[in-house]
């Protein structure tokens, strides 16, 4: 199946604005995030803490709906889903 990943702010700078990922059926959101992390140390550091837990400060959405960290593990992805990643900006 094919999932679209849309990256915002600091994440877009690392990943590019829009990428399509080919994933095995039954993949979860956690699986997708870990797969992204394996692409580069920069992505790993932007998504996970030293223990490999997803950072609370990063907002992850599936089809425009915010996912809680409990949902990262349980959320199965489907063909055509759009995952968006937004590390909130903080300046003023």
């Amino acid at each position: 199946m094919r999932v679209q990943v849309k990256a915002f702010a600091g994440f877009r700078e690392i990943l590019g604005p829009d990428i399509a990922l080919e994933l095995p059926e039954g993949s979860t959101l956690t699986g997708l995030l870990e797969g992204l992390g394996r692409r580069s140390p920069g992505i790993q550091k932007a998504l996970f803490d030293d223990q490999g837990t997803p950072l609370k400060s990063v907002i992850i959405m599936v089809n425009k709906k915010r996912q809680t960290r409990a949902e990262f593990v349980s959320r199965e992805l489907h063909d055509g889903d759009e995952v968006a990643i937004y590390p909130p900006v903080a300046g003023g």
């Binding site: 702010a9 877009r12 604005p17 907002i59 915010r66 968006a84 937004y86």
Partner: peptide, 16 residues
């Protein structure tokens, strides 16, 4: 949350 992506000049709404 209303996101402004100034490089694409696009607004995106996220339900929270």
């Amino acid at each position: 949350l209303v996101l402004w992506d100034g490089k694409a000049s696009q607004f995106t709404m996220i339900r929270v």
